[in-house]
Amino acid sequence: MTLANYINDLLYRYDCVIVPNFGGFVTNTIGARVNTTTHTMYPPKKQLTFNAYLQHNDGLLANYIASNKNISFEQATTFIAEEVAKWNKDLKTTAVEVASVGSLSLNEANQVVFEPNLTSNFLTASFGLAEVSTPSVERVKEVKVKSLPTVSEEKSKTIPLYIKRAAAAAVFVGVVYVGWNGIQNQQQQELLANQEESVQKKIQSATFVIDNPLPTINLNVTKEAKNFHIIAGAFQEVHNAENKLAELQEKGYDASIIGKNKFGLIQVAFASYATRSEARKALETIKEMVSEDAWLLAK
């Protein structure tokens, strides 16, 4: 994966992703809106901007890359620096596409200009929602319907007698037909109901036997023990330890509370490792980039 793809992934989870020594992509959630001119409704989304002054390495991007590529934090930082150098070189001649985030270019003052991809929506709550356009509604003019002229009593008296008798006979035949048709429909419905009841009874009484069932498979998976911890701090109060844990996890660390020490203080770790060599490499990076007070605990 390229650096742009990692940035794209993190923008779904965080409101700010900083690329060290380059700038930060910042999101701001906006609500649904309607364009009354084009009759288009837009779902809620994250509005994306770029801030060239956010260049400090907060560890979020590097930790995510290190976890995905299964490399050290230092190697991930080097990978970011190489990608940024390539971006700066390409920007002198052309625009740089950052996955589905948007494009970067230089203006006349040699400043980075960001154009967001308006089709991308990094708000997970709006997943599956799309723009909806509706045609405009035009008002229909009222139409007046003239009433049909009524037949006068004098004309009704002039209707021949044989026409009246024929009309009465037609009405009688119609009533008889409707009645017979209703009886037939009722008989068909009763027949279908009896057939359906019979099928249901057969299904309920049926049994299914599998002669050769598949054998069960037992998987024995041993979890690698992580006994080397990089300690970020020790706290007497539980809520202080939980706040520190949430802070480290927000920055992208695989942080955890590893219990109390011999003084009864709750210890919070940046991360835990299976080997001492891995833990020492991570400790050097954390002491240099984040906290000089971090130290290694082996259990």
Rank of each mutant, 00 (worst) to 15 (best):
L192A: 10
A193R: 01
A193I: 01
A193K: 01
N194A: 13
Q195G: 00
Q195M: 04
Q195Y: 04
Q195L: 03
Q195E: 03
E196P: 04
S198A: 15
V199N: 07
Q200K: 15
K202D: 01
K202F: 03
I203C: 00
I203D: 01
Q204H: 07
S205Q: 15
S205K: 12
A206V: 05
A206N: 02
T207I: 05
T207E: 06
T207D: 04
F208Y: 13
F208L: 15
F208S: 03
F208K: 07
F208W: 08
V209G: 05
V209C: 01
V209R: 00
V209S: 02
I210W: 06
D211T: 12
N212I: 07
N212E: 12
N212F: 11
P213V: 02
P213C: 06
P215C: 02
P215L: 08
T216E: 15
T216Y: 12
I217K: 10
I217D: 00
N218W: 08
N218V: 08
N218Q: 14
N218Y: 05
N218E: 13
N218H: 12
N220F: 12
N220G: 09
N220E: 15
N220T: 14
N220V: 15
V221S: 10
V221K: 10
T222Q: 13
T222R: 09
T222H: 10
T222S: 10
K223F: 12
K223I: 14
K223D: 07
E224G: 08
E224M: 11
E224T: 15
E224K: 14
A225W: 06
K226N: 01
K226A: 00
N227E: 04
N227D: 09
